[in-house]
């Protein structure tokens, strides 16, 4: 069930390219536990974020400069639909459910 451990992906990105906008749903062929690369990147960043109010959308963008805002937004929407993350102080701050 739980995907153990602090999966901290050190720094931000490295890979450029792969500019396809992830389609939500559909037959998932994601690399890790059913998430796309973008989704797991976003999730890992949120998981790794220490502050109680959660990671802001702005913060996400600056951590993932290679992704454009709509891709990040989609990932966030997806993760929140799945229950992996939830919004905190406002709709722009997110925390992971399996953090703590």
């Amino acid at each position: 069930n739980k995907s153990s451990g602090p999966l901290i992906t050190g720094n931000s990105v490295g890979a450029s390219g792969m500019g396809d906008v992830g389609s939500l749903g559909g037959s998932a062929s994601g690399p890790t536990n059913g998430l796309t690369l973008h989704q797991s990147q976003v999730l890992n960043l949120i998981k790794a974020y220490p502050k109680p109010e959660g990671l802001s959308f702005q913060e996400l963008r600056s951590q993932l400069p290679s992704l454009n805002a709509s891709v990040i937004k989609q990932a966030v929407d997806f993760l929140s639909n799945e229950g992996h993350i939830y919004s905190t102080v406002d709709d722009e701050h997110f925390k992971s459910t399996d953090a703590e």
């Binding site: 069930n1 639909n81 799945e82 229950g83 939830y86 919004s87 905190t88 102080v89 459910t97």
Partner: peptide
């Protein structure tokens, strides 16, 4: 703050449902 707790509870619920 109450809102955050609600969001969290809802999220955990979604997560649980998906793994049910």
């Amino acid at each position: 703050l109450e809102r955050i707790e609600r969001n969290k509870a809802a999220a955990l619920l979604r997560l649980a449902n998906r793994h049910a």
